[in-house]
């Protein structure tokens, strides 16, 4: 069953709620990370950066962040979703999907036709989520190495 929620642009006063949601999803991120993200994606003028929150009642139950990135690694302009979380007690109610669809529309209006993300290959939940929404391996491969 779909949860009744509203999705809107994040505002400065959402910071604490987002930090605690982000903390549940990924303990490694420090609050400093979030103030930078808010600074960049909420407070500045922007037409190709999107930070959306999902509200149920008066409570923030999810967020999603994305932007248009152009010509990195030779790639034509493309939408990126780089953070997403739903409150654990509100999962599997369609909120993640609604937020993803909403940000995809925002990205489309900003002029791109592809949306891309990057996921830890051991994160079965997040990978299954994106797969369920129709995403599959793209043209680019992430490569890395330890620096001696």
């Amino acid at each position: 069953m779909k949860e009744q929620i509203s999705i809107r642009n994040a505002i400065a006063s959402d910071l604490d709620a987002v930090v605690s949601l982000g903390q549940v999803a990924s303990q490694d991120r420090k609050p400093g990370f979030w103030s930078n993200v808010f600074d960049h994606y909420v407070l500045r003028d922007k037409n190709d950066r999107f930070f959306l929150v999902a509200e149920s009642g008066n409570r923030i139950v999810g967020f999603i962040i994305g932007e248009v990135r152009a010509w990195e690694f030779g790639s034509p302009p493309c939408g990126w979703v780089f953070a997403l979380a739903v409150s654990p007690e509100k999962r599997q109610l369609g909120i993640g999907q609604q937020m993803f669809e909403e940000i995809s529309q925002c990205l489309k209006q900003a002029g791109v036709t592809t949306v891309r993300t990057m996921v830890d290959r051991d994160d079965k939940l997040l990978l299954s989520f994106f797969r369920g929404l129709g995403l599959c391996s793209g043209k680019y491969l992430e490569l890395e190495k330890q620096i001696d």
């Binding site: 290959r121 051991d122 079965k124 990978l127 299954s128 797969r131 369920g132 129709g134 391996s137």
Partner: peptide
């Protein structure tokens, strides 16, 4: 990472 994250529901969709 591919085969263990495509559910039957996803493949059917």
């Amino acid at each position: 990472a591919v085969l263990d994250t495509i559910t039957l529901a996803t493949a059917l969709k």
